[in-house]
Write a protein that binds this DNA or RNA. Structure first.
Lengths: 343, 343
DNA sequence: TTGAAAGCGATACCAG
DNA sequence: CTGGTATCGCTTTCAA
């Protein structure tokens, strides 16, 4: 690989000055031609010369130099601590990246480990992003938001359970999911309701609020004497089998299984244990995956209607264009029960 | 929000010069202190003064300016055209990002739409990444690799079906998956074998080679007169039902269903049609998802052993440290059949 | 131990 | 229509 093509391998990267020299013009002219600057007219022969020189040298402009000069970037920072899990969330995430790219932003995914909110904010600010979309795992403080804004961020958007002073907020109401599931089960006559709590890390952000929502829903029907029982479960056959084995001692007549995937796991284990669904125990999942419709009995579920990634990208773009606007609060998702056969 | 905190909102971003002024020292000293430059000793009082000034101003260094000066970045570019679909691939991808971050690289995800190989390479080169890991959807040419290397990229790694001159290659042998599945079915006595071809975009990269591998495996047993039949299918109940409805006219005795998820979809449709599995039709999927073990009959599958994201991150790091090394070829994945009850 | 100044690469003003 | 030149923010010699 010492001389793979006609050029020495370690030749320094060509700059606009090199192009200018080769074309026999000034760097300014190079810049004008290559950027099609309309405020200035350059003769066609000159244009051609510059273009050819750039081509021959394999000239590529230096983004960092450009944004240093420009005083701003088109970077949208997406900090991620724990990874979005599950098809729903990961689809949303991908769509967001695409849409941002289409709007000509540069997406930088920044894994922030071992940094507290303010430390992370400082690290992010070093990149001078024009916008930051915090996907909820890192807790951004009002001070962190200040730091980012002062570093030039035109928009800071949090996606998560709460909202932060100074930032737009896409609130995701996980508790509503648990609440609706349990309200449905109560309406179907259930009184002792299990709530699956996944053991996998990174899901606490979802499971905690869902459990809280479940409890709240049970409170509403206080007169009925509903009991909520958290059920730790990891996404493994053994874990489900163990839970199923002691199922009858729990005396539950229903379970909200966190997601359709956990529901399938648990349902299989219960059925293997001879427990009939929904007669002996009702089951409801969430996410309305195709998967659930294929099970027998067909799985009841909480359908989650999420904002699209495109929508969020548009929100980012609007916020960038209108940095003065008051931070607003939006709902990331809405949910409703889809009743099938398992409940 | 006009004056949310004590500071005017549009005050210009503080620079190291501001810090120097406030601390009553020179910019050089500021740099020394803030970077803990060991080659130079600064008195403790000065250090303190500088630190305090930086703190008070909320100073955050400018990454672009720094790398402009340094002449290199720690950016690892991950171009993505179509998004990796499925739990296996997306887990790998996430792990990769984390591991790179831990090695102190800045991960930039660059969605490249409507760019051909060379155009994309030029666009990527603008960021002066120290490494590029091309996840296979964009076809990188040898010339594109040259452009990237000349722009300062110490390592270019492709992940995909083939390899490109000048770049390290992580070859993913999708055809082996189809081949092993079909060889297994043939060994079980099947002779007319369907191969599911997902209709979803972005999966051609997987389905094409798998089909080719299936055909090759059928050739090997030429004497047995095995026939391979591609079966278009989209991931929807209707599509599966339609396929199942005309199943008997196809006269197939086995099917390789692309993945466990498609397998589950198809298996359910076939069972609803009264077709017994594996007696009348054998089914095998791939990916060895937990899902498949929960089905009845338990789903046979092709287990895919992929390199970890951590491993790839380490490869990137090694390649960056030793840019002179000859491009090498690695295998991304290995596969083997896991026989259960559906075949 | 600290300061002055050069320069990284690109752009945009102001002369010519 | 084109060329000099100041500038963006930071690091790092070289002198003091």
């Amino acid at each position: 690989m010492t001389q793979s093509t006609e050029q020495p391998a370690d030749r320094p990267v060509p700059t606009s000055a090199d192009v200018a020299r080769l074309a026999g013009v000034s760097r300014a002219t190079v810049s004008y031609v290559l950027n099609n600057t309309s405020a200035v007219r350059i003769s066609d022969p000159t244009r051609r010369k510059v273009r050819e020189a750039a081509e021959r040298l394999g000239y590529v402009p230096h983004a960092a130099a450009r944004s240093l000069r420009a005083g701003h970037t088109r970077i949208v920072l997406l900090p991620t601590a724990h990874i979005p899990v599950g098809p729903l969330y990961s689809h949303f995430f991908n769509e967001l990246q695409w849409a941002l790219r289409r709007l000509d932003y540069t997406v930088v995914q920044y894994g922030s480990l071992g940094l507290d909110g303010d430390g992370a904010a400082r690290a992010w600010a070093e990149l001078r992003p024009v916008a930051v979309v915090s996907l909820g795992e890192i807790v951004l403080t009002p001070h962190g938001v200040e730091v980012l804004k002062r570093s030039g961020a035109k928009a800071v958007i949090t996606v998560g359970p709460g909202r932060v002073e100074g930032a737009h907020a896409l609130v995701m109401d996980q508790s509503g999911i648990g609440g609706r599931a349990v309200a449905h089960l109560i309406a179907r006559g259930c009184r002792r309701i299990g709530v699956v709590m996944p053991g996998e890390p990174g899901l606490e952000l979802f499971s905690g609020p869902r459990l809280a929502g479940a409890r709240a829903a049970a409170e509403v029907e206080a007169g009925a004497g509903v009991r909520i029982v958290p059920l730790p479960l990891t996404y493994e056959e053994d874990s489900a089998a163990a839970l199923a084995a002691r199922w009858r001692t729990l005396g539950l007549d229903a379970v909200f299984a966190f997601s359709d995937e956990y529901a399938m796991l648990l349902m299989r284990a219960l059925q293997d244990e001879g427990i009939s669904i929904p007669a002996e125990t009702a089951v409801i999942g969430s996410d309305d995956l195709l998967l659930g419709r294929l099970l027998r009995p067909r799985l009841s579920t909480v359908r989650i209607d999420m904002v699209t990634g495109q929508w969020l990208a548009d929100l980012v773009d609007r916020a960038v264009r209108d940095p003065g606007a008051d931070p607003k609060r939006y709902d990331l998702l809405d949910s409703r029960v889809v009743h099938r056969e398992s409940s």
